[in-house]
Simulated scan of single mutants.
Amino acid sequence: MKYDARSLPASLGGGEARLARRQHMPELRFTKGDMVASAFVNALEDGRYRGLVLLSRDGGGSDDAQVYRAEPTLDSESEALEQAGALAQHLLKRYEN
């Protein structure tokens, strides 16, 4: 599994995050200290799914949040959510150190 752990530009990341939440996709939530990682799935126009992670500080404003995307896109919504969950845990481990 390959992860693209680069932060997305606000214009792309914010839109994808809002789109996935608007479609009521399943979401996983992970916390480590004051960091919160919400993993969710975005249904794409081509019928595939992309796992996304919204990483923020607990109680922080939305300006502090960063969106990360898992690569590649997948045919299965459940696999994309699993992939996003793994990316969320990976990102939180980076904040441990």
Rank of each mutant, 00 (worst) to 15 (best):
L19T: 12
G61Q: 01
G51R: 03
A86W: 04
A43H: 08
L54D: 10
Q83I: 04
L92C: 11
D4G: 09
D63W: 05
L44V: 05
L52R: 09
V53P: 06
F40N: 00
G59R: 05
M1C: 11
R50N: 14
S38M: 11
S7F: 06
L44E: 15
Y3A: 00
M25A: 13
A88R: 02
G13W: 05
R18E: 11
Q66N: 09
G33P: 02
V36I: 08
V36N: 00
L74F: 04
L81Y: 11
A20Q: 07
D58L: 14
S7Q: 15
T31P: 03
S56I: 02
M1A: 11
L87G: 07
S62Q: 13
L74R: 11
D4A: 09
E27H: 05
T73S: 15
A65L: 10
A20C: 03
G51L: 02
L87F: 11
R29V: 14
L8T: 02
E77P: 12
K93V: 13
L19N: 09
K93E: 14
E71Q: 11
A10M: 06
F40H: 12
D4I: 03
H90F: 14
L74A: 09
S78R: 07
E82N: 12
P72A: 07
G33T: 04
Q23W: 11
L55F: 01
F30T: 00
V41P: 07
E82V: 02
N42K: 13
D4F: 13
Y68I: 02
S38L: 14
R18A: 15
A17C: 06
S62R: 07
F40A: 02
Q83M: 11
D63C: 01
R50P: 05
R18P: 00
Y68S: 02
R6H: 12
L74V: 00
Y95N: 08
L55E: 04
R48G: 03
D58W: 07
A88V: 10
A80I: 05
D4K: 04
T31F: 03
V36S: 05
L28D: 09
F30R: 01
L74W: 00
A37Y: 00
M35K: 04
Y95T: 11
A20F: 00
Q66D: 10
P26I: 02
M1S: 15
R50G: 06
N97C: 02
S11Q: 07
L55K: 00
L91V: 05
L28W: 05
G60S: 15
T31E: 15
A37Q: 08
S62Y: 03
R18I: 00
L92I: 10
D34V: 09
G33H: 00
G85R: 08
G33N: 10
F30K: 01
